[in-house]
């Protein structure tokens, strides 16, 4: 007797039902794959800084006219000599550039200077973390001054014919030296009788610069402003602008860098909201120089360091911005009426 072959499950179910089952399984997989995503965290769980970084074009008073690319690692400090030569310090070198950004000389140094100034006679002063190194105009090391201790962190140097002012963010003081490396006095001690609480320096950003008339201005970053001090340390005047708007200095400690133009206006750089602005001598905002977009530094990056490593104003009154990640100096000049958008 011949036995009937056993039918498998595929043989027992009609083809149409198979097709329906297949479509159902595929649909289920697609639905799971597209919907098994967690919802985005709500707005109360996120800090959005983008609204604060927007700059209206009418507030931008300067335009970029040149960009000097640097053949230098870790560019960290910038200075303009009385001769007009632009000095840039970085890893193991100091570059000399002409007004068009062409490299004319290069001095080898050991390490990466955090700060730099050029004396009127061409000598170069480098802030090497906790001590100053003095180089002659050819780049030869003349002297290494006594260090400022383990906490010392030199972030700025301002030098005139007689004095060298060294801003030490670690010890929150400005030291006044002569060119022999002797300390003449220390500035920044708390003096509550004169309602001066000292320099508030929460992070390694602490700048000092001379204005067009040779007056010394020191940033008090935790106070969000600038202070004019006599060389002997007395506070002469000050202005502070804490706040998040365009007219103020944002965050815990700004401005990070300053430089003065020939008309007495002051150029300021900020971190947090990375931007460069210019204020008139009466402390009113003239306008924005570089926006966060210009600096390629949106404020939502996980980085508490400023992309702007230093500022300077050259002999043509152009604003020079040293941008570390770009390895470049951005050159800005005032907009002309034709540059402004309607």
């Amino acid at each position: 007797m011949q036995q009937e072959p056993t039918k498998g499950i595929s043989g027992r179910l009609p083809a149409r039902l198979w097709a329906v089952l297949t479509v159902a399984v595929v649909a289920l997989v697609v639905v799971i794959a597209t919907t098994e995503k967690r919802t985005e965290p709500g707005a109360s769980y996120k800090l959005d800084l983008k609204p604060f970084t927007k700059v209206d074009d009418k507030d931008v008073a300067f335009r970029q006219t040149a960009r000097f690319a640097l053949n230098l690692d870790d560019p960290s400090a910038l200075a303009v000599a009385d001769s007009g030569t632009v000095y840039v310090a970085g890893k193991d070198a100091v570059l000399l550039l002409d007004a068009e950004g062409h490299e004319t000389a290069r001095h080898a140094v050991k390490g990466t200077p955090d700060a730099m100034a050029v004396a009127p006679d061409g000598r170069i002063l480098l802030g090497m973390r906790n001590h100053v190194e003095l180089l002659d105009a050819t780049g030869k090391l003349l002297a290494a001054w006594k260090d400022l201790g383990e906490r010392g962190y030199i972030t700025s140097i301002a030098a005139n014919a007689d004095n060298v002012f060294v801003a030490d963010a670690g010890n929150r003081v400005v030291m006044r030296y002569d060119y022999g490396g002797n300390v003449l006095n220390e500035m920044g001690q708390r003096d509550l009788k004169r309602e001066f609480e000292g320099f508030v320096v929460p992070s390694p950003y602490f700048d000092a610069a001379f204005d067009q008339s040779g007056e010394l201005w020191i940033v008090n970053p935790g106070r969000h402003g600038l202070e004019n001090h006599r060389p002997t340390g007395e506070l002469v005047s000050s202005w502070y602008k804490p706040g998040m708007d365009l007219y103020s200095f944002c965050g815990c400690c700004n401005p990070t860098h300053i430089a003065f133009r020939s008309d007495g206006s002051v150029v300021t750089a900020e971190k947090g909201i990375n931007r460069v602005k210019v204020y008139a001598p009466d402390n009113t905002l003239i306008g924005v120089v570089a926006t966060p977009d210009d600096l390629h530094a949106p404020s939502d990056e996980n980085d508490s360091h400023s992309p702007v490593k230093d500022l300077a104003v050259d002999k043509k009154d152009r604003i020079l911005i040293l941008v570390g990640p770009m390895k470049a100096i951005l050159v800005y000049e005032p907009k002309t009426p034709g540059d402004r958008k309607p």
């Binding site: 996120k46 800090l47 929460p202 508490s304």
Partner: peptide, 12 residues
């Protein structure tokens, strides 16, 4: 992490 973002952006 809201505070972390604020501290990173404006502080240390």
């Amino acid at each position: 992490g809201k505070c972390v973002k604020g501290c990173n952006a404006f502080g240390n």
